[in-house]
Design a protein around this nucleic acid. Structure first.
Lengths: 169, 169
DNA sequence: CCATAATACATAGCCAAGCTATGTATTATC
DNA sequence: GATAATACATAGCTTGGCTATGTATTATGG
């Protein structure tokens, strides 16, 4: 646990680090900001139903039905965690499990109409709650955000990126 | 709980909604993506120390010492939650409490050097873990992200924005 | 073709981080 | 100086993470 002497940028690093230093720093800010936004949303809508629910439904809606394990990987949570979330969604009848005829161990998780409806409703609520915070946005700024979201969504998706640490093992 | 018929955009809304519809939709995507990014970060770094810790330290670093209540508001959590987080940080000696001579009920929360060091270290780890995901970014894309983060950070900050639902009461 | 390994999910049990409701000390107010 | 308001702490609950492990199914090697 080192400390002391951290004025701005770090100078001594591996070669190639010079070029990626701003990216490094950007990523730190990005994640911190992302977390604050998530809190902002939860706080302002103060719904009890949990962010994880919406995140999961969003993934399902974006990518269509998939197996529980795949859903876990896409959501960057472990399989047991996803089992729990899916059980909750199942009890609400927001998703259904479609048996896989080829593999009796697995089933496809598919969102149900009322799950999609609930998600849409939540997004509405969210929009209404957050609009005040983004009130004076110029068209240009709004455009920047739109493009940023598209970039990030793409990068956060599984297929493109390295699986890495947590997922494996 | 309504369901059925949600093909893309909603048409019937209050006046003025037409103009803000894309913003609504943008915000939905934004929050979902933000949450996925937070998970991505947690998953890839698989540190145990919890996002809330870093978020709190970041707020402290950005705005300087402040009272616990203020810190809670900035972080968009309730006061008891912040009490818990601060206790944890205190035990680690990552923050200290500075008694307020004018008001014996309150004290200022200030980050300690080793707290700042830990935060910096985490940001390093984070950068290293996430760089692979953002590998082929063009300069233009990186610039877009930078600008987006700046906009969002500003909007998520307290002073500018409406306090609203959760905080009040 | 059967035994073993690998896979897909479920279960159990733990902890962190949210929340509401309530308590306790201090400060402000009439 | 009593009452109200404020700032934080405590208690107790829920959710959403995690690891470790169990159970059923499928794949594989001799």
């Amino acid at each position: 646990m080192y400390y002391g002497a951290m004025t701005e940028t770090l100078d001594i690093q591996a070669p190639d680090a010079v070029a990626s230093a701003p990216l490094h720093s950007l990523l730190g800010d990005l994640i911190t900001t992302a977390h604050r936004l998530t809190r902002l949303a939860a706080h302002e809508t103060n719904r009890t139903e949990s962010p994880a629910t919406w995140r999961t439904l969003s993934v399902l809606q974006a990518h269509g039905p998939m197996r529980l394990g795949e859903l876990a990987r896409q959501s960057r949570v472990t399989q047991p965690t996803m089992t729990k979330i899916v059980r909750g969604l199942d009890e609400l009848n927001w998703i259904k499990r479609i048996a896989d005829s080829d593999d009796a161990r697995a089933s496809l998780i598919a969102s149900m109409p009322r799950g999609e409806a609930a998600l849409a409703e939540w997004r509405e609520t969210l929009g209404t709650a957050l609009v005040p915070f983004f009130d004076g946005l110029t068209d240009d700024e709004q455009d920047t955000l739109r493009r940023a979201v598209d970039i990030l969504r793409d990068r956060a998706d599984l297929r493109s990126s390295a699986p890495s640490a947590g997922a494996a093992k």
